[in-house]
């Protein structure tokens, strides 16, 4: 097909479109949904009994802060990446990745400095919470990304996966009463990494199918 014919074909099929809201608005929409989902899960299952005491412990606070920074920054970067030219700099992708690394390092450091035995590495409830909350929030984010135009499916899916699993992990941390750093590392960080990997693979595939030469008028 010649380019002139393609232009005519595209123009002929071009109806009015609904403009996508700016990435900043879409970030708040997703964060609102994700925060609501996390709050519902925490209220439904019940927060840990000693939450008041837990928030005075540096490791708990550092871990939760790292997760929240990762969630907000990853959502912002993923949604900006889904609009051509909206990402200010690829260097912004470093922040969510660094926050996730800080989250893992927090618990690694606690293991290194803790002398206590490690009783329970994996708890099914934590794994289910991370998986379910991660899947629901991740699917919502993926749907929003597919409505835009993510030109780099792998990067966008990877960063979106970070947003999904970190909000799920933050909610799980507020619920989970097990303070053992080994449990946090294996039962939370490792599970989140596995869920995130699955979310990345699924998300990359769906975004690539949508945007690498298959979406047409």
């Amino acid at each position: 097909m010649k380019t002139d014919e393609l232009i005519l074909e595209l123009a002929k099929s071009a109806g009015p479109v609904t403009r996508l809201a700016p990435p900043s608005v879409r970030v708040w929409r997703w964060l609102g949904m994700a925060a609501t989902l996390a709050a519902v899960a925490v209220i439904a299952i019940g927060p840990r009994a000693d939450l008041g005491a837990a928030v005075t412990r540096p490791a708990f606070v550092a871990s939760l802060l790292a997760l929240l920074v990762a969630t907000v920054s990853a959502a912002a970067v993923a949604l900006a990446m889904s609009v051509p030219g909206a990402e200010r700099s690829p260097r912004q992708r470093v922040l969510p990745i660094a926050a996730v690394v800080a989250w893992a390092l927090t618990w690694l450091l606690m293991i290194a400095t803790s002398s206590a035995g490690h009783a329970r590495l994996i708890h099914a409830g934590c794994a289910i919470e991370i998986a379910v909350l991660g899947m629901v929030s991740g699917w919502t984010l993926l749907t929003m990304l597919r409505r835009a135009a993510p030109l780099q499916p792998a990067w966008t899916a990877g960063i979106a996966a970070i947003a999904a699993v970190t909000v799920a992990s933050a909610a799980t941390q507020v619920i989970c009463p097990i303070d053992d750093p080994a449990h946090q590392l294996v039962g939370h960080v490792l599970i989140a990494a596995l869920v995130g990997l699955a979310a990345f693979v699924v998300g990359r595939g769906r975004l690539a199918r949508t945007w690498l030469g298959t979406r047409r008028p």
């Binding site: 380019t3 595209l10 479109v17 996508l20 700016p22 889904s82 609009v83 135009a149």
Partner: peptide, 13 residues
């Protein structure tokens, strides 16, 4: 490029 512009034209602000 033209095909992508067509599919992404709703994202232009």
């Amino acid at each position: 490029t033209l095909l992508t512009i067509h599919g992404a034209r709703h994202t232009y602000d």
